[in-house]
Design a protein around this nucleic acid. Structure first.
Length: 892
RNA sequence: GGCGGCGUGGCGAAAUGGCAGACGCAUCAGACUUAAAAUCUGAAGAGGGGUUACCCUCGUGUGGGUUCGAGUCCCACCGCCGCUACCA
């Protein structure tokens, strides 16, 4: 394309003008309660986007898909008289900025700032009606100060099992060791260490044994880490999903991730030593079928029980497993391996001796890290037993006959295949004959009675590994002294990361912050003697008041880990409610208003984002929210009442968009060629919001054509090539047919926006435009209505038409602040309707009847049809179905 | 393997159990034009019959079922996509 394509309407001129206008007028600023301009009589609507990580490559068309949907809804709700909170911000801590810093030596804040500026520019070019006064940035000290503050709330709290909620340790914890119950605690657990990134990763950041970012190999390694006790909330995180208006798939995903399973813990003793092995099983009814035991290779008990003869082999196996990455473990999953420890355990119910093995198919992190193996009724145990020639003992029968009457059959031949289903207990002493469910209950009762075990619930969910060995994250407000951690006082927040010359990882697992030697040395900066009444106001009480500490050198060292990127996104929706508040993470009034319950469940009214955050972000944010709720800091138990996932936008080739495929669409180029309104409308017209769908440049052009038709409905080009009000536009009343299509459009567009069915809303507006394209005169009133309902979709075009056609009633407010038009249902009803007539369910004729025609009249009219007479000639009419206003079906 | 989602023209799609394919893209034809683009008008699921208006048959992945009536509900199967994966 050598020369510029002529623009069908001047979007390139009007779009920037309106964007500047909205900014100058602060059209989309939403005042908080108590601020000037706040109208308490209006209901509130909080519509939220998942805020982006401002990457160097800028917006991708997937971003504005969801953002346009929320923008349309937000603009619509404003027109419907709501106080609308629709904010935007930046999830700006993250690995790419840090890696750029490592490469260039430039502080990550610099690149982050320019990326944010670029994202903001792109979003503004799309005409989104955000309240930019509420913009947040997780890397801003005024923001992460409160991230650190929330961490301190978590740190100072425990989960009280009696009340099933978080409470301040200082207030209700009566035990001796608060560090053992904190919701934020330090653990020495094995972690996913990624040598290439020089950091540990959360389980969630490891995909197929490789780092999610960069795809580097990950290995297991024990390190001291901060953990958040999310497992305490496992049950509530499942239960409280129920009242949420979320897609069922996402709810399922979350609840599967938490992974509740009911079963029992059973205590085995090690033969010849006092050691106890506790296992978790969902099939305690198969206890009599246990023929060996397996410990995870990393299990602490292994050292204590391994025999001298087996020591070398066990050590070798453990070493091999430790070296294996998760990837290798997964790849080798087909072939099970293991080593006998030389030790034996005793089955608590029958005293049978069971060899104790170690094998990497048993995971330290699930259950108790130890299992009783019942090869006859578990596929993994079956496979393992076959490989190592361990005994297999059937204790569940598919049919009830075997176990009943004469007791267990004498023969205990090994079964030919594994049976994992439910059935009836056999060879199981007191359980014989019982169906599986009853056998489970009975064995649990017996175990409890004899203190050999108990019924319990196990969760797949693990505590959240919350520290990272990175520079570009929130530093922990924690110092260490004599091996103990202490919280900083709130007055010392924000704790800023130190300046560094070199952002490279140390490679030892020690975080980059450790390089800031002076920063790491901590001296108490102020003492508030006598204010020890609250848990946080008193800086480092255990360090005491060391006179002259400043002269005598550091009394403590700072924590050098930083928080993961998830931290900032756990509460940003709260900050939006009161983004400028310098004295609280969110003002109480603002929080109560925007997250208000109003008798309903409350929280964010609509949250739109991609499925990639279905589990982690949403789970973490719910967890933090619940802690804050328990502590009385927020007023709702759940943050996001309604959740919608927008679908993926594929490349024009139907493949997922990616740089390597070269099919990525940049919103900037689309805006240049067709304008922001066309991009917005196209994104909404492609298909249902939640479906994934392929991009089509032709489709954008079609939408652009539609918008140009709307433009020409009001304006025409004069001899001089200027756009002037069309001569066809006159202030005349629309005729009946025109009124009908207008009111049908008001109704359908409104209903479709509420249902997020934007594609069909646009179809209806196209129908409306088609109906007026050749109208002459063209009633001004028709344009008023059309421009109003189209405004949330194509705000620039419609504002311009509104102004040029002089449609505003007071000439002051932008269209965006005009009320949504009302429709008259009376105009939608037809006097006469066309009704299809079917014979045996097949369409044979159509008749026109009066709207209010009775069933009998309709049937008579149908029978009177000559075509129907032909179809029914010589046949007996068995039945006639008349659905008033719908159809007639004659059965012969 | 498990869980979830989806299969409708050449393409994106629409359809409270009630006229399948609205709306748009691409296509074709006509109008305007010296010509093209743009614009406007119209045609069009597939197959067949008729001189026109028109008529018939088939048709929503496949096979069954429920129903007066199924794209829609139920069962089984096939295919694609996403997530998850030794979870005891």
């Amino acid at each position: 394309m050598s020369h510029e394509r002529r623009k069908p309407y001047p979007f390139d001129i009007i779009e920037p003008q309106w964007q500047a206008h909205w900014e100058a007028q602060q059209t989309f600023h939403t005042p908080n309660p108590g601020e000037p301009g706040f109208d308490a009589s209006r209901p509130k609507y909080y519509v939220l986007d998942m805020f982006p990580y401002p990457s160097g490559s800028g917006l991708h068309v997937g971003h504005p898909e969801g953002y346009t949907a929320t923008d349309i809804l937000g603009r619509y709700k404003i027109m419907r008289g709501f106080n609308v909170l629709h904010p935007m911000g930046w999830d700006a801590f993250g690995l790419p900025a840090e890696q750029h810093a490592i490469k260039t030596g430039e502080h990550p804040a610099i690149q982050t700032r320019s990326n944010v500026d670029n994202f903001r520019r792109q979003l503004k070019a799309l005409g989104f009606g955000y309240d930019w006064q509420r913009e947040v940035n997780t890397t801003d000290p005024g923001y992460y100060r409160w991230t650190q503050w929330i961490f301190l709330q978590i740190y100072h709290s425990w989960f009280n099992p009696a009340t099933q909620r978080a409470e301040p340790i200082a207030e209700t914890y009566t035990g001796a060791d608060p560090d053992s119950v904190r919701l934020a605690y330090v653990s020495e657990a094995p972690v996913n260490w990624c040598p290439a990134l020089g950091t540990v990763l959360a389980n969630e950041e490891v995909v197929d044994g490789k780092s999610e970012v960069g795809g580097h190999p990950v290995e297991r390694r024990p390190m001291r880490q901060w953990m958040l006790r999310i497992t305490a909330y496992a049950q509530r995180l499942i239960d409280e999903l129920e009242g949420l208006d979320w897609p069922t798939g996402i709810k399922l995903l979350q609840s599967n991730w938490i992974g509740r399973s009911e079963g029992a813990e059973v205590h085995f003793t090690v033969d010849g030593s006092g050691e106890k092995i506790t296992v978790f099983t969902t099939r305690p009814d198969t206890l009599y079928g246990a023929t060996y035991m397996v410990l995870a290779p990393e299990h602490a008990l292994v050292d204590a029980i391994v025999t001298e003869e087996q020591l070398a082999e066990v050590e070798a196996y453990r070493e091999k497993t430790a070296r294996k990455s998760d990837l290798e473990r997964t790849e080798l999953a087909k072939e099970k391996t293991g080593v006998w420890t030389g030790a034996w355990a005793l089955n608590p119910v029958n005293g049978q001796r069971l060899p104790i093995w170690i094998a990497d198919y048993v995971l330290l992190g699930y259950g108790t890290g130890a299992i009783m193996a019942v090869p006859a009724h578990d596929e993994r145990d079956w496979e393992f037993a076959r490989k190592y020639a361990l005994p297999i003992r059937q204790v569940v029968s598919e049919s009830p006959t075997l176990g009943l009457g004469g007791g267990s059959p004498p023969c205990e031949a090994e079964p030919l295949e594994v049976f994992t289903g439910e059935g009836f207990a056999i060879h199981s002493g007191p359980l014989d004959g019982l169906p599986t469910a009853d056998a489970k209950a009975e064995i649990s009762r017996l175990l409890t009675e004899q203190q050999l075990g108990f019924k319990t619930v196990n969760y797949k969910l693990r505590d959240w590994l919350f520290s990272r060995q990175r520079y570009w994250g929130e530093p922990f407000p924690i110092v260490w002294s004599e091996g103990k951690h202490h919280a900083l006082a709130e007055s010392e927040l924000p704790l800023n990361p130190p300046p560094l010359d070199d952002f490279k990882p140390t490679g030892t697992g020690e975080p980059p912050l450790a390089k800031a030697v002076d920063w790491v040395k901590y001296r108490p900066i102020h003492h508030e003697r006598g204010s020890a009444g609250t848990s946080t106001a008193f800086p480092l009480p255990s360090l005491g008041f060391i006179e002259g500490a400043e002269q005598d050198g550091p009394v403590a060292t700072r924590e050098t880990n930083t928080m993961p990127q998830w931290a900032g996104s756990c509460w940003y929706y709260l900050r939006y409610c009161d983004a400028q508040n310098a004295s609280r993470f969110v003002g109480e009034h603002a929080e109560k208003y925007w997250m208000a319950t109003n008798g309903k469940p409350g929280g964010v009214d609509l949250y739109v984002g991609g499925t990639e955050h279905a589990v982690l972000h949403l789970l973490y944010a719910r967890f933090w929210h619940k802690v804050l709720f328990d502590l009385g800091q927020v007023s709702t138990p759940e943050p996001f009442q309604r959740l919608v996932n927008q679908g993926l936008i594929m490349g024009e080739d139907g493949q997922k968009m990616s740089k390597s495929r070269g099919n990525v669409v940049n919103p900037d180029t689309v805006i240049d060629a067709y304008g922001a309104d066309a991009l917005r409308c196209y994104l909404m017209f492609m298909g249902p919001l939640e479906a994934s769908k392929p991009w089509s440049m032709n489709g954008v052009e079609g939408i652009n054509r539609f918008l140009a038709r709307v433009w020409r409905l009001g304006l025409e080009e004069n001899q001089a090539g200027e756009w002037v009000v069309s001569r066809a536009v006159q202030d005349v009343a629309p005729d009946k047919a025109q009124l009908k299509v207008l009111h049908a459009t008001i109704k359908k567009v409104g209903e479709d926006i509420e249902a997020l069915a934007f594609n069909t809303a646009i179809s209806q507006m196209m129908i409306c435009v088609n109906a007026f394209t050749n109208a002459n005169p063209r009633p001004l009133e028709a344009l008023r209505v059309l421009v109003q309902v189209l405004n949330p979709f194509a705000p620039h075009l419609t504002e311009e038409l509104w102004a040029r056609l002089g449609l505003g009633r007071n000439g002051v407010f932008p269209l965006a602040r005009e009320p949504w038009p009302a429709y008259d249902p009376a105009l939608l009803v037809e006097d006469e309707i066309e009704i299809p007539i079917q014979v045996n369910g097949k369409l044979r004729d159509k008749i026109v009847v009066k709207k209010e025609a009775t069933k009998e009249e309709v049937e008579a009219a149908a029978r009177a049809s000559t075509k129907i007479a032909e179809w029914t000639a010589g046949k007996e009419i068995k039945k006639v179905v008349v659905v008033p206003g719908k159809l007639v079906n004659i059965v012969v």
